[in-house]
């Protein structure tokens, strides 16, 4: 479809021998497995530590566990004022709202920036980028005041409403870059078929940017799940605490900490995001290559 703009030749030719072709997958697997092991060491250490009695964690240099001390999970689950289920559900609620918000609002804004012509576009685009650049620590106090005037403190609103209003400019920018990778001829074809702007967005752009939407979902899920600072600031009642806020309540730098429980609950809190990634990544590979457009 873009043939008229292309010319020239590809010069390089494969010179690889047949033997190499056979060995290659094996070599790649070995290299990847070795790299994975090195990368995962800290994670493995964490899982192992979650299965040790608290006071052995730092005194035991070996990474092998002799007996499984699942006690940490039971104790950790109920160690704080609410059962850990509560924090998991709270986090899930915040994550759900955030993902939904980001998907809808960021893709709309991104479509406008990537495909539509309008007055003030450059200015708005620059402002969008600027809004990613200010460190959170200096805006948190004014923002807190804003939300407390609205009476939103100790609700999930300060965490979710900004996402519904596309304040995560990172994702707007991400989607702009992806939409610009989609050939414009497709828009044109749809327009000739009678689609308006909304139709093009819904029928052409959205289906073609599934990888970007998957990326947004995965990142929003993970980053919101792990976000400590704003959840700490806006949620005051322990009943409203989310996982990252609760996790830190196991640790006291100057006194007794429940490392066993902390590691156990860290492992527990890793599971949802790991599952989210496992599921989400399947959509990453549903790119143009698999949507029938070639």
């Amino acid at each position: 479809m873009t043939t008229e703009t292309m010319r020239g030749t590809v010069a390089a030719r494969s010179t690889a021998g047949i033997g190499w072709t056979r060995i290659r997958p094996l070599v790649i697997h070995l290299a990847l497995a070795a790299a994975a092991l090195v990368m995962l060491y800290p994670v493995i250490w964490m899982v192992v530590s979650s299965l040790r009695p608290g006071n052995e964690i730092f005194r035991e240099p070996s990474i092998l566990v002799r007996d499984l001390h699942i006690e940490n999970y039971r104790v950790g689950w109920n160690a704080l004022t609410e059962p850990f289920t509560r924090y998991l559900l709270n986090s899930a609620a915040v994550v759900f709202g955030s993902v939904l918000g980001n998907l809808v609002s960021c893709s709309m804004a991104a479509y406008a920036f990537a495909r539509l012509e309008f007055t003030g576009k450059k200015l708005w685009f620059a402002i969008m980028l600027l809004s990613i650049m200010l460190p959170i620590h200096v805006v948190i106090v004014p923002q807190y005041i804003l939300f407390s005037q609205a009476g939103w403190i100790n609700t999930f609103l300060p965490l979710v409403v900004p996402k519904l209003l596309a304040t995560d400019a990172f994702f707007v920018f991400l989607m702009v870059q992806f939409i610009r990778g989609i050939p414009r001829e497709l828009d044109e074809a749809a327009r000739i078929d009678g689609c308006g702007r909304g139709g093009i967005f819904l029928r052409v752009i959205l289906p073609l940017m599934v990888p970007a939407l998957a990326t947004t979902t995965i990142f929003t899920f993970i980053w919101t799940w792990n976000d400590f600072f704003s959840q700490l600031i806006y949620l005051t009642d322990p009943k409203m605490y989310t996982v990252p806020v609760a996790l830190r309540a196991f640790v006291d730098a100057t006194a007794e900490s429940s490392w066993g429980s902390m590691f156990a609950m860290s492992v527990v809190s890793l599971l949802p995001i790991f599952l989210a990634f496992l599921l989400g990544q399947r959509f990453l590979i549903k790119g143009i290559a698999t949507t029938g457009i070639k």
Binding site: L232, I233, P238, V245, R248, V251, A253
Partner: peptide
């Protein structure tokens, strides 16, 4: 209403 937290976050909050 008790509100608990860890040292450094406590002071930010």
């Amino acid at each position: 209403k008790g509100e608990f937290g860890e040292w450094s976050g406590y002071w930010d909050k």
